[in-house]
Design a binder for these strands. Structure first.
Lengths: 230, 230
DNA sequence: GGCCAACTGCCACTTTCTGTCAGTTGGATG
DNA sequence: CATCCAACTGACAGAAAGTGGCAGTTGGCC
């Protein structure tokens, strides 16, 4: 596939997987032939990475500040937020406190408040009884959330009525026994929750709602607050 | 020349040069045409770099929310491990993968392998149906785990038999509907799981088992492996 | 409306990358 | 000392990129 991207993934793999790691394993991980993997290792070394290889043993990456830093990507942040939300309600006070602390630390390192909103949205909306299996391609939905692109969906509600809608997805929420998409519904002009198992068709509509996203999230959170206190 | 190398240099250039920086300048810096530079920026973004571009202004590299090493204390690490284990079994493949990745990344930043063992122990032993409330002071138990001190407990097993034991606690485990302590039982000379609600008295025995801890954990994990494959 | 600079699409041309295959090498194990 | 393991290397031909140039478009700002 795309080589440059692959090199970054290779580097990540070497950081993430326990050392020592064999070339064969890395080749599998990055989906290339063994020969290409040796070439990739070469490239990384040429780019300045310190990779130690021992015959009959495996590779070891020596961490180096010249390399691109270790980061959490958005999937990972979402997993963190979700997992920590779960821990918070498990009932162990010390751990709950620790979870909150981790949450705060990670939130503090996020670049702009857009991500922070996503972060808080997910963890606030989270509800206990999540027991679900992912039906359709939720990753596409999550991508749409991050890239702030509208989605065109066919949706069947609880009553069985089917409709075609364009939605502006804000966050994937883990609630009420199923995966749910929190979105602004362009049909109803209101915030709606769409259960994943009700979505039968799904594609990127191709239009961006970048300017509105933060505003929408803020509005939604305000609405939540109002409902709670009012 | 070599594209992958160039991408690393581009990233370096964006780090080093004062923001905002124009595409033209970066093209000059990396010795490519403007058109190729835009492609390179694309590649970096695809690889996960956060680069903000504003028309008429220039580029800005958001120093990735780098994972600062060593900023998580043990409570926090435990909360992380627990939460991520939960996410892993939630059934969303992309998130599960992300959770595994976070786990590995955090593990990589831990100073020595002692913590790594704790880390892996907790996440491996974790089982689905954790719905518990902390009864006694689990924090004391967790502290004992970290400080590698023996615990003296009074324990009532499922059959109702009560005994006094000295145990070497390895990890607090979240399993089988209750908090559980995984420990080496000095009475039985074997690994045992003690349900928290069966522990009626608890105090630090005052003796350390520091030298044995890593060995014990390794043995326990090996036992787990054996049970699985054998 | 004009400027700036990020962005995009297209095209013909090059360069590089890719997997395959057939080796070699150094260390550890038996 | 033979065997295994896994890191490495070289060569090759077909496939897949990357490449610059050019001609746009877009959004913000003066």
């Amino acid at each position: 596939m795309a080589r440059p991207d692959r090199l970054f993934r290779l580097l990540q793999a070497m950081r993430v997987l326990p050392a020592p790691i064999t070339a064969a394993r890395l080749a599998e991980e990055t989906e290339v032939s063994l020969r290409s993997l040796y070439r990739d290792i070469d490239s990384l070394r040429a780019a300045g990475a310190r990779i130690e290889g021992e015959r009959g043993y495996g590779y070891r990456l020596i961490e180096d500040y010249a390399l691109p830093p270790q980061t959490f990507d958005r999937d990972e942040i979402e997993a963190l937020a979700l997992g920590l939300a779960e821990v918070k309600r498990m009932g162990d006070p010390a751990l709950a406190k620790a979870a909150a602390s981790v949450l705060a630390k990670v939130a503090a390192t996020l670049p702009d408040d857009r991500e922070q909103h996503l972060f808080h949205a997910v963890s606030q909306v989270y509800r206990p009884d999540a027991r679900f299996a992912a039906g359709l391609d939720m990753d596409l939905v999550r991508q749409a959330c991050w890239r702030e692109e509208a989605l065109a969906i066919r949706y069947t509600d609880k009553a069985g009525a089917t409709s075609e809608r364009t939605i502006l997805p804000l966050a994937v929420v883990y609630t009420e026994g199923t995966l749910t998409v929190l979105a602004w519904c362009c049909l109803r002009e209101a915030f709606r929750m769409f259960r994943a198992d009700g979505i039968s068709q799904l594609r990127l509509a191709g239009t961006s709602f970048r300017p509105r996203r933060v505003v929408l999230l803020r509005e939604y959170l305000a609405e939540l607050q109002g409902r709670r206190t009012g």
